[in-house]
Design a protein around this nucleic acid. Structure first.
Lengths: 354, 354
DNA sequence: CTGTTAGCGCCTTCAC
DNA sequence: GTGAAGGCGCTAACAG
C-alpha cells in the first residue's frame, strides 16, 4: 500500500508537495502537479484518511443511533440521514439499539472513541444518559423524534397536532366513543399523542370518566389505555377495549405496530373495519410496499426528519454550538383511507349519535 | 480532550504503562493499575481509536454498500449485517447506491480511504467495476445477492430453486398459462428466476412458443416478459400480458415491486385475485407491516443473508484470503397465502385444463 | 512555488 | 513490571 512518501519520491518532490497536489491546496507549478498526478496514477495511491483525521481531528463521519432500522419509519429516517450526510461528504455509521439503554450506551462510547464528528440520536430512554455522555465530550448532537431533559437540538414530529387532527377526523365522522390505544406513559411521543387526542375531545365536549364523574357519559366518553408500541400491545389493548359496553366505535392506534395488533383483534372478534369499528393510526404502514393501503393515518415526514436533523447537525459542525439549542417540529399529514367510516346507529344502542 | 499522556502524567507513570492498563495487555502491578484507572476516571479519558487504527492498521469498521436501505429486503439484510458486525466489535458504514455504478464507485473509494477492514457489496452493475477496485487494494470483500465475474466470496439466495418451487406450486394448482414478469435480462437474479421457471415448465411438458412452434400450445405455454424491478415495470408487464388471448391464469412477479404493480393492473382490469388470476411473487412484502399478508411468495432469508455474509467477511479478516472464494447459496421459503388458487374452468374458454 | 521540521495519539520493540 | 525511543501517514507552521 503506497503512501504519500512513495508518491513524492516517485515524482521527485517532498511529501508536502504531493499533499498539496492531492488536496488541491496551495500553489503548485503545473509541471510538478502533473508529475505528482502521474505518480499517484502509476502507484494506484489511495490517501489514508485515518492519518488525515488524526491530524485534522475531523473524521467526516456521523453516528446514527436509532432503535431498529427494520422499522420502516426508522428506515426512512435513516435514508434521509444518509442522503443528507453523503451530499456533504460525510459517512454514516449505523447502530440499532432495540430501545436498550445499555446497547445505546455501548454504541455511543465506541462512536466517541472513533471520533465521529457528530451524533444523530433517538434516545432509548428519557433519562438521556447517552445524550449527556455525548454532550460532556462536547461532540455535536441532534436528538431525533423524542424530547429529552437536556439543552440540545431536537427534530421531531408534531405528535400532539397529528393526534389532534386524527381525532378530529373521527369526530367529524360522528364518532363519540373513541378509544386511544397508547404507548408507554413515559415515552414523550406517546404522551404527546394522548394530549392531542384529549384536546380534540375536550373541544368537542366529550367527557372524561375519571375527571367528570358527574357528567353525562351517554353522549360519548374518553378511553385511554396505555401499553407498548408493539403488535402484542395493540392486540391486548384492543381486546380489552372492545369488551367495554357500549363498545367504542373507533380505535386510535398510537403507532403502526399497535394498529396491526388491533386490526388482528378486530378481525378475531368478528368485527368489520370500518363497518363495525373504525381504525386509525399514528404512523403510516409502508404504503410503497402494500398491495392496497387501507389504514387512515397521520403520517410522519420521516425522510424529512432524517434530512433536517442531519442538516442541523452539519450546521453545528461548521458554525459551532451557537447560543442555544433549536427545536424543529415537523408537521404531520392526515391521510384518509378506507379504515375509517361514519358511525352506524346500532338498533340496540341506546346512545343516539347526533 | 485528554490523551493517554495526560492519564499517564496524572498516574505518575509512562504513557505505555497507561496503555497497558487501558488495553489490558502485559503485566502491570495491581497498585499502578488502580492509579491509572483512577486517572482515567478522573479525566474522563476516552481512547482515540483513530490513532490506534493508524498504528494497528485496523479500523474495526466494515463498509456496507447496497442499493437502497428503504427496500425492506435490504433493510433486513442490513440489520443482519449490523448485528453480525457489532457482535464482533465491528461498526458498519452504510451506503445507498440506488443501483448507480457511479455512486457505488464513489462510495467505495471513500471507504477505501477510510481504511475499512472489509466490504459487503451488492454490485450495482454486473461489470463489477467497484468489486475489482476493492480486490485490487486487496481489501476483503463479500458480494451479496448477485453474481459477478470475479473470484470472490458470494452469499446469495437460490433464485433458480425458489422460482422453480413457486412455478411448481402454480402447476400444482392446475395453471398451464403462467406469465413470468421478469426483471432486467442482465441482472443475474432476474435471469436465475427465469431459469427456474423454465425448468419447472419444461418438466411439466409445457411448450415454449419461441422454440416449439410446432407443438400444441393448447395445453398451455410459456410467457416470459422482461422489464424493470419496479412497480411501473410490473404494471406495464401485467397490462401487456393480460391482453393476450387466451389470458394467462397466473402471473409470476419476479420481485415484490413487480408484484405490487401487477396487482394494481389486475384490479384496474377488473380481475379478481385469485378468482380470475393467481398472482405470486419472488420476495415477500414486509409481512410484519401488513394488516393481512395476502401474496403467495417465495421469501428470501434476508437477515440470514446479511449475517452469513458478515460472518464470512470476518472469517476472511482473521483467517486471511484462503485458497479460493466460497459461494453460499441460501434456500428460499415458499409461503402459500391467499393470492394463488386453483384454475377455474371458464365456460367460454376452449382450452380445457387437465 | 517548494521544502524542513514537527507532531496528531497510540503502541511495537527493545531495553532495564 | 516498567520505560524510552520511534514511527504509523499525514499535514500545519514556518521557512526559503
Amino acid at each position: 500500500m503506497p503512501t504519500i512518501k512513495d508518491v513524492a519520491k516517485r515524482a521527485g518532490v517532498a511529501p508536502i508537495t504531493a499533499s498539496r497536489v492531492i488536496n488541491n491546496s496551495g500553489y503548485v507549478k503545473e509541471s510538478t502537479r502533473q508529475r505528482v498526478e502521474a505518480a499517484v496514477e502509476a502507484l494506484g495511491y489511495v490517501p489514508n484518511r485515518i492519518a488525515r483525521s488524526l491530524r485534522s481531528k475531523r473524521t467526516h463521519t456521523l453516528g446514527l443511533v436509532l432503535s431498529d432500522i427494520t422499522n420502516p419509519f426508522w428506515t426512512t429516517v435513516a435514508r434521509g440521514v444518509e442522503d443528507g450526510a453523503s451530499g456533504q461528504g460525510f459517512s454514516v455509521i449505523l447502530c440499532n439499539t432495540d430501545e436498550s439503554p445499555a446497547k445505546e450506551h455501548d454504541y455511543v462510547r465506541v462512536l466517541l472513541q472513533k471520533q465521529v464528528d457528530g451524533f444523530l440520536l433517538v434516545p432509548a430512554h428519557s433519562d438521556a444518559h447517552s445524550a449527556a455522555l455525548i454532550l460532556k465530550q462536547s461532540v455535536p448532537l441532534v436528538v431525533i423524534d423524542r424530547t429529552v431533559p437536556l439543552p440540545v437540538d431536537i427534530v421531531r414530529s408534531d405528535s400532539e397536532g397529528g393526534a389532534y387532527d386524527l381525532t378530529r377526523h373521527l369526530l367529524g365522522l360522528g364518532h363519540r366513543r373513541i378509544a386511544m390505544l397508547s404507548g408507554p406513559r413515559e415515552v414523550s411521543t406517546a404522551a404527546d399523542r394522548v394530549t392531542g387526542y384529549q384536546r380534540a375531545l375536550t373541544e368537542a365536549g366529550i367527557a372524561c370518566p375519571e375527571t367528570d364523574q358527574q357528567e353525562d357519559l351517554s353522549k360519548g366518553h374518553r378511553m385511554v389505555i396505555y401499553g407498548t408500541f408493539t403488535r402484542q400491545g395493540g392486540y391486548a389493548m384492543a381486546k380489552e377495549v372492545l369488551a367495554i359496553t357500549p363498545r367504542p366505535t373507533a380505535l386510535f392506534a398510537a403507532n403502526n405496530f399497535i394498529a396491526i395488533g388491533a386490526y388482528r383483534a378486530l378481525r378475531e372478534t368478528g368485527l368489520d373495519v370500518p363497518g363495525d369499528v373504525s381504525l386509525v393510526a399514528f404512523d403510516d404502514l409502508p404504503p410503497n410496499f402494500s398491495l392496497e393501503p387501507f389504514l387512515t393515518v397521520v403520517a410522519q415526514r420521516a425522510y424529512d426528519m432524517g434530512q433536517t436533523a442531519t442538516r442541523q447537525l452539519l450546521k453545528r459542525l461548521t458554525e459551532g454550538p451557537g447560543d442555544q439549542p433549536e427545536e424543529v417540529l415537523l408537521p404531520t399529514d392526515l391521510i384518509v383511507r378506507g379504515s375509517s367510516g361514519k358511525v352506524k346507529e346500532l338498533s340496540n344502542d341506546h346512545t343516539r349519535i347526533r
